[in-house]
Nucleic acid binder design. Sequence first.
DNA 1: GCAACAGAAATTGCTGACAATCGGCGATTG
DNA 2: CAATCGCCGATTGTCAGCAATTTCTGTTGC
Lengths: 233, 233
Amino acid sequence: MAKLTSLKAEKRQLDRRAADHIRSHILDGIFPANSRLLETQLSDELEVSRGTVRSALAQLASEGLVKQVAFTRWEVSGSSTTDGWEIYTLRGALEGLGANLAAANVTAEDASRLRTIGSELLRAISERRFQDATDIDFDLHAAIIALARHRRLADQHRLIMHQVRFHMVQSGFLPKDYDELIAEHKELIEAVIAGDAERAERLARNHNDAEVRLLTASLQQGDQSGRLDAESV
Amino acid sequence: MAKLTSLKAEKRQLDRRAADHIRSHILDGIFPANSRLLETQLSDELEVSRGTVRSALAQLASEGLVKQVAFTRWEVSGSSTTDGWEIYTLRGALEGLGANLAAANVTAEDASRLRTIGSELLRAISERRFQDATDIDFDLHAAIIALARHRRLADQHRLIMHQVRFHMVQSGFLPKDYDELIAEHKELIEAVIAGDAERAERLARNHNDAEVRLLTASLQQGDQSGRLDAESV
DNA sequence: GCAACAGAAATTGCTGACAATCGGCGATTG
DNA sequence: CAATCGCCGATTGTCAGCAATTTCTGTTGC
């Protein structure tokens, strides 16, 4: 007997839904970087209690999208050059591991699935639907990570990709060379499908190298938009 | 003029302190894997309100030490073979990145600091103070990560090391070969100090390879202590 | 004897109110 | 006039209680 599992999926906890709402506002740029978030204001807007909002904000803080200044304020995280550098280097390490593991246990259906997403990406770009293309890009990377069958990695990857998205919005990032982008993705997909773990890992790790080099250079040039480390020890 | 910064550091928020308390109980094995945690019981024991305990538990859940079953229960995370495999592979990726970056910007004082910790480790082992040795081992790896000057990486590393510690306690892990352990650490330290990023990265990544291979083999042998993935999509 | 069901008990989810803390504004004083 | 102190409003931190949900238990019907 088919038991219809939770037809009413709206039973999700209020604080989770509140967190989702606030998160999407942040990722869409409605709450800009470094802007202040007031518990009372959010609780009014979402029509939940302040405690629920606090719980949601705490979640977002653990995801790195929000910062808490104790006894004082909540604010949307900044997205400085330093932040960008951190985000992309960490992403490289995680996706490198993911691609390696994915290549090690890829199946035939996985392969066709990856190729499907790849062709969707190609189509979106050729039709100049760049917003869709970005989403599909994210889906593709998530799909590869999923193949690693590594829950902790998948969780971390989801979090860092939120930060990537946030940083892209804040910095007005746009890919420069769509042809190269497509080529890189195609290469990565084929390496994973071929089961070439080493090659897949290298491609995944270097996928953001251009971005990282740019940010590194910007940092070393004494770009002061990064936060300063005032403390030692 | 020496400004005395915050003599009263006990102003930390209650939920943080509650989380610290519960976390140390988990890491010390007082709350065993998969054991249930009752909000009321904890709030009685810690003499704080249930809301505060809830906040603490939510933090620990985001750290992966605790699981929340909605509307039902909190429990200490399990530590199966699968979990161990996830933890050590992820650790390898993070420490690889960390060692690479550390080697890239190590200074003279950093070098002496690392060597000091290294000799402390050596002494603890030669004097058969193995508990101390484990702590120093953790300090050493944390010190290398700190050199990377990468806040997100440091945060993730701290979390994963908590899980490593937990898994070690749960699985009764003990290093087999202290001589090799020392040799590996010495090699890693010297590679970082020499600024050989590539070599440092490789050493850091392979540091847990023996453990990973053991766990991988155990998994492929159909060891069913890992959790099953019941869902697809 | 066993399965299904209803009510009770236990536990988690959420809320509104109270307490503690912070930042700014104005008064005061040298 | 400038610097410091203390008050006040605003905001976050904590609490105790009510609501919703799950699990347990005893009962009923077959």
